[in-house]
Amino acid sequence: MIDIAIEKKLKVYHGRQILKIDRQFANGSITKIYGPSGAGKTTFLKIIAGLISPEKGRIAVNNTTWLDTNININLSPQKRKTGFVFQDYALFPNMTVAEHLAYATDDKDWIKRLLILGKLDTLTNHKPAHLSGGQQQRLAILRALAIKPKMLLMDEPFSALDPDMKAELTIGLKVVFRELSATVLIVSHNPAELDGLVDGELYISDLSL
């Protein structure tokens, strides 16, 4: 069980608003996160990963406290080791496809499997600049999976994929998620995109202060 209750003030162009979430996620659940732009969906994922600190709150993952502002506990992103798919992919321009995955894990069989899953097995020597948008996005997903995360946070992970590729990848990912028994949060703008993949939803609204 992942138990999250956080509060974070956000600065937006028309003033300030507050991101307030209180929610539990079952282990192995796959949840879609949606809501208006600027409501704090990305911030929410980054708070869970430990990349942003909220003013107030607590995050407990299976009885391990990741964050508790009352007793000054705030585990580093390195200790939380969430798989994170960034909206801008955040690929390393100096590394090839193979090097991205080797940077994340030593497990060669796992890397091989991921490359096939993301259909990048023929492009292992390419750097991000020589990949298409869809290939870059798939690499970002594979890199996040490479560390076999128990918690996977995906920020618009399918936005650059064509429908066929998306459908095929989703089937493969579902199997991998189950195998890893990963708890997955996926931010998505496309209403039907995650049908058949997710088993829950979280709506983040913009609460003005």
Binding site: K46, Q78, F84, D88, A104, I147
Partner: peptide, 14 residues
Amino acid sequence: PASLAQASYTLGKT
């Protein structure tokens, strides 16, 4: 981009 270093941190790198 800040996300480059952040991505590395989430992979457990110091």
